[in-house]
């Protein structure tokens, strides 16, 4: 897989949800460069370029992370927390996409720096629309941070910190 052209990291443990999401993305013509992580740990290894993904470079982060909260091993909130507290990864947009509409999850997610919070609608049409909108916004409309500069600044911060 060519990680250099990576667009979306989908973190989802449930096969059904994953399939539906991928289906929706495909229909929205956004599924060209998608990686799926099946648990929190895998997601973190991928994003921090370690373990099975040690060959990856911070220079090519995903343009969007779709993050479920209920995940095996490391849950979604922890993933969010680690990504957003590391200068090398905190510019990566993370959209929480979950079944829960609990207020405390919403608040916790935003407090940790989530870029967006979306409840998966029960209705598939709505779900599809939502996924499509998100993909369109973050992949097409949004202007990502220049990675080289982010990388330099992160290094400086790590050294001084």
């Amino acid at each position: 897989m060519n990680f250099g052209k990576l667009d979306i990291l989908l973190v989802e443990d449930n096969q059904d949800d994953m399939d539906l999401a991928l289906h929706a993305l495909k229909q929205g013509k956004l599924a060209n460069n998608i990686v799926v992580a099946r648990d929190g740990e895998e997601a973190l290894d991928f994003l921090f370029c370690r373990g099975a993904f040690a060959h990856r470079s911070f220079d090519h982060p995903p343009k969007l992370v779709l993050l479920d909260l209920k995940l095996p091993k490391v849950d979604g909130m922890e993933v969010l927390k680690q990504v957003k507290s590391d200068p090398r990864t905190r510019t990566i947009p993370i959209v929480i996409m979950t079944s829960s509409k609990e207020e405390r999850d919403l608040v916790a997610g935003y407090n940790l720096g989530a870029n967006s919070y979306i409840q998966k609608p029960v209705d598939f049409d709505q779900f599809r629309e939502t996924v499509k909108s998100i993909g369109l916004y973050w992949l097409v409309i949004n202007q990502p941070a220049p990675t080289s500069l982010v990388h330099k600044m992160a290094e400086a911060e790590l050294i001084s910190g």
Binding site: D16, L20, K70, S99, S100, V122, F124, F127
Partner: peptide
């Protein structure tokens, strides 16, 4: 309630989603 909100809705969504597909 949390599990209702999260766990019960998920299969429902799958039923809805796949029947739609």
């Amino acid at each position: 309630s949390y599990s209702v909100s999260h766990d019960l809705r998920a299969p429902l969504r799958h039923i809805g989603g796949f029947s739609k597909l």
